[in-house]
Design a protein around this nucleic acid. Structure first.
Length: 120
DNA sequence: ATAGTGACTTTAC
DNA sequence: GGTAAAGCCACTA
């Protein structure tokens, strides 16, 4: 029989990654965060079925979400801190305030604005 | 296949 | 309140 090269699937990258199921679940989860609410990267990862992939969530958002209708600004660090670096951080704070979320010193009170999927 | 990197998180000072 | 280190996922070179 012809020795075919291993049909091993390489990790999707670039535009292909958008078709990856994991990426889709992450984007869908972020999209599910209601206005006026925020969630942490770890929480998004968990809701997306990727319990410890908080870092990956950040990577996905940085790479693909900027130009799409996904509410990326509702994702913060576990302590409610804006983790984005650069001018984007200012945009995030502005977008959150437009939704009625209080941002103080680059930080949001998760206890008050944290998204609780089970609840709503 | 190994090493480096990051929009993370948790634990320990 | 803060910094440091280690663990974590998956991408990149």
């Amino acid at each position: 029989m012809s020795p075919r090269p291993a049909p091993r699937r390489r990790a999707p990258s670039g535009a292909e990654a958008l078709q990856d199921a994991r990426v889709q679940r992450i984007l869908a989860t972020v999209d599910a965060i209601p206005p006026g609410r925020v969630a942490s990267y770890g929480q998004v990862a968990e809701e997306a079925g990727l319990p410890r992939a908080a870092r990956f969530v950040g990577t996905v958002l940085r790479r693909f979400v900027a130009n799409r209708g996904v509410p990326w600004h509702r994702v913060l660090g576990a302590d409610g801190t804006i983790r984005v670096v650069g001018g984007t951080a200012r945009d995030q704070a502005r977008l959150l305030r437009e939704e009625g979320v209080t941002v103080r010193n680059g930080r949001v009170a998760m206890a008050d604005f944290g998204w609780q999927p089970a609840e709503d």
